[in-house]
């Protein structure tokens, strides 16, 4: 196990962290809207959001490849702007991961928001708080366990991504080679020791993160 290349691990953690941050930017307003709207479009938006849960990652990755590839609309647009391709790049991988992990962030947030006592929101309004202030001082603190769950599930799910990463990112060391792909490559090459080292690391990180979450949630429940 000596001389283990840590690049895939750092890349994976960087990808997962960035994905979670971006997903919160998109997911908070989306989940808030889903939890409160009575629009007839809600079921459709919910279905689209949940799609990555049921779709085989390879299918999602395939369509993302068509979209982000050199011939795809997003890929062409990106190329025209930056002069670089989107597929088989870290940026492309981030976009793919965001779509792939979207339901894991949106659904816990939506559940937390819909369980919230709506009248605390209305009370904040009558007390003069703007919608923005109400969201950050009344809604988010009450939904904190949902926020935590969303962050962890989004992070953990991105850590374990394989199919999408392979389709969109490929296997470029230092750029798109995430841990799961590194493991796959080592197994193919019958380098079980190397594969085991990465697998153990992934297992350890995942366990640690989940442990932390359940610990925090337990403390939280004690407060209630």
């Amino acid at each position: 196990m000596a001389g283990l290349d840590l690049a895939p691990l750092w890349l994976t953690v960087k990808l997962a962290a960035l994905t979670v941050v971006l997903l919160f930017v998109v997911g908070l307003p989306l989940a808030w809207w889903l939890a409160r709207t009575s629009s007839r479009w809600r079921p459709l938006v919910e279905a689209v959001t949940a799609l990555p849960l049921v779709l085989p990652p390879v299918v999602l990755g395939f369509y993302l490849l068509l979209l982000l590839g050199a011939e795809g609309p997003l890929g062409q647009w990106w190329m025209a702007f930056t002069g670089r391709p989107l597929a088989f790049s870290f940026t492309g991988l981030v976009i793919a991961s965001c779509l792939y992990s979207l339901p894991f962030v949106v659904q816990p947030l939506q559940t937390a928001f819909s369980q919230l006592d709506r009248r605390t929101v209305e009370a904040a309004w009558t007390l003069g708080a703007s919608r923005f202030k109400t969201f950050f001082t009344v809604v988010l603190p009450q939904a904190r366990s949902g926020v935590l769950t969303a962050a962890v599930l989004g992070f953990a799910h991105t850590l374990g991504e394989f199919g999408v990463a392979l389709m969109v990112g490929g296997n470029i060391p230092g750029e798109t080679q995430v841990v799961s792909i590194a493991i796959y490559e080592h197994v193919e090459a019958l380098a079980y020791d190397q594969a085991n080292a990465y697998a153990l690391l992934l297992l350890g990180v995942s366990l640690l993160v989940l442990w932390l979450v359940y610990g925090i949630q337990r403390r939280d429940q004690g407060l209630r």
């Binding site: 006592d117 009248r119 605390t120 209305e122 009370a123 904040a124 309004w125 009558t126 003069g128 708080a129 703007s130 009344v138 603190p141 009450q142 904190r144 209630r224």
Partner: peptide
């Protein structure tokens, strides 16, 4: 005029206190 700018003090039926404050 939105509720924020009406200056109404409202006591809700189940109080709607902020549980985390």
């Amino acid at each position: 005029v939105p509720p924020q700018r009406r200056g109404v003090g409202m006591v809700f039926q189940d109080y709607a206190l902020f549980p985390h404050r």
